[in-house]
Write a protein that binds this DNA or RNA. Structure first.
Length: 449
DNA sequence: CAGTGCGGGTACG
DNA sequence: CGTACCCGCACTG
């Protein structure tokens, strides 16, 4: 490993967390982390990150996904499971072509209330699309503070669209409050809560804006901030690839649905090393593509919301969700959640990892100092992101700060995120055999803003 | 009011 | 024993 590590250092391709072989349950976690990962809001897949104890987002155990606390009876490790996303039960398309994808309320009560609301666009009831990306169970995130670092481990691949991020939700709420009726600049529509914005508003939105955020089907999948090799961990860890219940499907390596689905649907076999993530490949998403794109091939057809025939999926999908129409959710994009593709779905494959059982910890001995002084990582970081990571810096994972500013007057929400596209393209390929593709650079999602 | 985290407790494999 | 999950409670903003 040393070799590998060395290499990585050089490349900085992979997240700090992935450089080490550890599991959230290990009695001892790596202490020699000199660098930390920059905070990843939208983690997906079986990934690990080591954040600086100073990272506010990490301290708050934030995630773009709606994660609720899950009692694992282990006070040293905070476990959270994904609630999925709230969508229109009819799967209607908003005026701008996007789909409603609200952030499920974390609080049970609030969530129930939320589900009673109606789709702002078609008035159909809203529906909670549960996350079943981890062997049929919700994706789980584990947080553990150890020394000066905050260790993060995620298990499962989200099989649903991204909900509105927490910051977006908050921003929206505040805007909504203030401006009851308002003008044109609507924040992002898609995620809007029903009552909050009427259909009218929705229709006013400028599509161009929207895009950045939410694409009609896709948006969510942007791998944007993902760290490299989401799915490779096992290897990295040495964990055995799960023996999955199902036949291994090449796809397992696929990154996120986003890029994949294409292949997904059409070409079943994807070499493990597919490149969609390959840096070499990714490259160029021009800003233009910015909108999204995962550019790539996905294009059009694959996601057209309605156009796609997701029928197959739908059928299956329906089971869980009453979606009738066009939900692309099920279709191309999230094949994984359904049986059919279950076999190939990453989730299935990876299942194994699920848990963390390696070591026994002591039951909740509450650690004295909850947060020791975390000075972040040893290396002093320059203001910015730096400190954390070399990886980051070079790595694909873009760091960004998620702040949303709301401009009251306009009512629009502006995100100010900065990320660094850096590395994306050039990563060299690793020799170690793992594919380290980062996720897509696509950070564009936010750039535009 | 909602988000969070904790912890008791149950069910299941 | 590990995991998922339900429920209530307390604290916070």
């Amino acid at each position: 490993m040393s070799r590998a590590e060395e290499r990585e250092e050089a490349d900085c391709v992979c997240s700090v967390g992935m450089k080490f072989t550890w599991d959230i349950n290990d009695p001892k976690l790596p202490q020699d982390t000199k660098q930390c990962d920059s905070f990843q809001e939208w983690t997906d897949g079986y990934v690990r990150f080591i954040y600086s104890g100073d990272d506010k987002n990490a301290q708050r155990h934030l995630s773009g996904w709606a994660m609720r606390n899950t009692n694992n009876h282990n006070c040293q490790i905070l476990k959270k499971s994904c609630l999925g996303v709230v969508v229109c039960s009819r799967g209607c398309t908003l005026p701008d072509g996007s789909r409603l994808q609200l952030r499920p309320a974390i609080c049970d009560k609030a969530r129930q209330k939320q589900q009673k609301k109606l789709c702002p666009s078609c008035n159909a009831p809203l529906e909670l699309l549960p996350c079943r990306g981890h062997s049929g169970y919700p994706v789980t995130n584990f947080w553990r503070i150890d020394g000066k670092a905050i260790f993060f481990q995620a298990k499962g691949v989200h099989d649903h669209p991204r909900p509105e991020s927490k910051s977006e939700t908050e921003a929206r709420r505040s805007t909504v409050k203030r401006r009851v009726s308002s003008p044109p600049f609507t924040p992002k529509r898609r995620l809007l809560e029903p009552q909050a914005l009427g259909p009218a508003l929705l229709s006013c939105v400028d599509p161009s804006e929207r895009i950045s955020f939410i694409e009609p089907n896709f948006t969510q999948h942007y791998p944007s901030f993902q760290s490299p090799e989401p799915y490779y961990n096992h290897n990295a860890l040495g964990e055995a690839p799960p023996t999955l219940q199902k036949p291994a499907n090449p796809r397992l390596y696929m990154g996120r649905p986003s890029y994949e689905f294409q292949g997904y649907l059409t070409s079943p076999s994807y070499p493990m090393t597919s490149d969609f993530c390959d840096p070499r490949v990714t490259p160029v998403l021009g800003p233009s593509s910015s909108s999204n794109s995962s550019s790539v091939p996905i294009s059009s057809s694959s996601f057209e919301p309605q156009s796609k025939t997701a029928s197959g999926w739908k059928e299956l999908l329906k089971t869980s969700a009453p979606y009738g129409d066009n939900h692309h959710y099920y279709s191309t994009e999230y094949p994984c959640r359904y049986p059919n593709n279950a076999p190939g779905s990453p989730a299935a494959l990876q299942t194994i990892i699920t848990t963390t059982t390696k070591v026994s910890y002591q039951p909740c001995p509450k650690p004295p100092a909850a947060l020791p002084s975390y000075q972040s990582c040893p290396a002093p970081k320059p203001p910015g992101l730096p400190g954390c990571s070399s990886l980051l810096d070079d790595s694909p994972s873009s760091s960004y700060s998620t702040e949303v500013k709301v401009t009251e007057e306009s009512g629009g929400v502006i995100k100010s995120l900065s990320f660094q596209p850096e590395a994306l393209q050039t990563k060299t390929e690793r020799t170690d055999g793992y594919d380290y593709r980062y996720t897509y650079p696509n950070t564009y999602r936010y750039d535009d803003y």
